[in-house]
Amino acid sequence: MARRHSGTEKVDVNLVPMIDIMFQLIAFFTMLINMDNVNRDERIRLPIADLAKPTEMAVDELLTLNVNRQGKVNLLGDLVDVEDDVFRQFMIREAAAAQREMKRARRKIEVVQGRPKLWTTVMIRADAEVEYARVQHMIKVCQEMGFTKFALRATAERAE
């Protein structure tokens, strides 16, 4: 009788340590999220250069251009050919936005060869296999809009 009675007792599982650990795991993963990566197109295989070490760059404004191996730029999810007029229009809008920001920040806008020298750094994340002519064309379009600062992205090691 006594045994049968004990069988009906309610057994409480102590969930507190499990919840503690799960919260810690969530906090760990949350901290690992790198918000710098949002503009990175992970499908792009960057060229390898051992001197391309990550360093702190003093940048006023940053514009990241991801170029895939076919020479297409990823503009907010749309793949656009660098020689397409859509890319030029995009850069015109970016240049106008940069000028507005510079004026708002009361920065003096120098004029070089009839073009405003913009403060934005254009970060080029070009695939290792893209043709040089495509990248050169992209740089030329950016220059025509007044972008003068560029950063050529590379990786020090092969990403798997």
Binding site: L51, I139, K149
Partner: peptide
């Protein structure tokens, strides 16, 4: 996992004149 990326800073203040651009490249900085 985050793959480390680096850059070569380039200053291309001039448009190509006579077929040649005039940039300056400094590894890792502008």
């Amino acid at each position: 996992p985050i793959t480390e990326e680096g850059q070569f800073g380039v200053n291309l203040a001039h448009l190509p004149v006579g077929g040649a651009a005039v940039p300056t490249v400094v590894p890792g900085e502008d």
